[in-house]
Computed example of a mutant assay.
Amino acid sequence: MLKHWPSLTALRGFEAAARLGSFHRAAQELHLSQSAISQQIRGLETSLEQPLFFRQGRSVTLTDAGIDLLETTQAMLRSLASGVRRLDQYRKPNQLIVNTSPAFARHWLVPRLADFRRQHPQADLWLLTSENAPDMGTQTLDIAVRNDLEAQAHCTHRVLLHDRLYPACHPSLLDVPVAQRPTLHGEREMDWSQWQVQGGVDVGQRSDGLNFSEPGQLLDAACQGLGIALVSELLATAARAQGLLQPLDDARVRGPRWSWLLHDDSARDPLVISFCEWLLGALPATPSR
Score class of each variant (00 low, 15 high):
100 T>Y: 08
100 T>N: 15
100 T>H: 09
100 T>E: 11
101 S>D: 13
103 A>F: 01
104 F>T: 03
104 F>K: 13
104 F>Q: 05
105 A>D: 12
106 R>Y: 04
107 H>C: 07
107 H>E: 02
108 W>I: 09
109 L>A: 08
109 L>M: 09
109 L>W: 09
111 P>F: 10
113 L>I: 02
114 A>P: 01
114 A>H: 06
114 A>N: 11
115 D>N: 12
115 D>H: 00
117 R>S: 06
118 R>S: 07
118 R>F: 04
119 Q>L: 13
121 P>M: 01
121 P>Y: 05
121 P>T: 08
122 Q>Y: 07
124 D>N: 09
125 L>H: 07
128 L>N: 14
130 S>R: 12
130 S>H: 10
130 S>A: 14
130 S>I: 05
131 E>I: 08
131 E>K: 08
132 N>T: 14
133 A>W: 03
134 P>H: 10
135 D>M: 11
135 D>A: 15
135 D>S: 13
136 M>L: 15
137 G>E: 01
137 G>C: 02
138 T>S: 14
139 Q>S: 11
141 L>T: 10
142 D>R: 04
143 I>D: 07
143 I>P: 05
144 A>R: 01
145 V>G: 06
145 V>D: 01
146 R>Y: 04
148 D>I: 10
149 L>Q: 03
150 E>M: 11
150 E>T: 13
151 A>C: 03
151 A>F: 08
152 Q>K: 06
152 Q>C: 00
152 Q>F: 00
152 Q>I: 02
153 A>Y: 10
154 H>F: 07
154 H>W: 14
155 C>H: 09
155 C>I: 04
156 T>Y: 15
156 T>A: 15
157 H>V: 02
158 R>W: 04
159 V>W: 14
159 V>R: 15
160 L>C: 10
162 H>R: 13
164 R>Q: 15
164 R>E: 15
165 L>D: 05
165 L>G: 00
167 P>Q: 00
167 P>I: 00
167 P>M: 06
168 A>L: 08
169 C>I: 02
171 P>G: 00
174 L>I: 10
174 L>N: 07
175 D>P: 01
175 D>S: 14
177 P>S: 13
178 V>S: 12
179 A>P: 08
181 R>D: 04
184 L>T: 13
184 L>R: 06
184 L>F: 09
185 H>L: 06
186 G>Q: 09
187 E>S: 06
187 E>H: 14
187 E>G: 11
188 R>E: 02
188 R>N: 10
189 E>W: 14
190 M>V: 15
191 D>F: 08
191 D>V: 12
195 W>E: 01
195 W>P: 04
199 G>C: 03
202 D>Q: 11
203 V>T: 06
203 V>S: 00
204 G>M: 11
204 G>V: 08
206 R>W: 05
207 S>T: 05
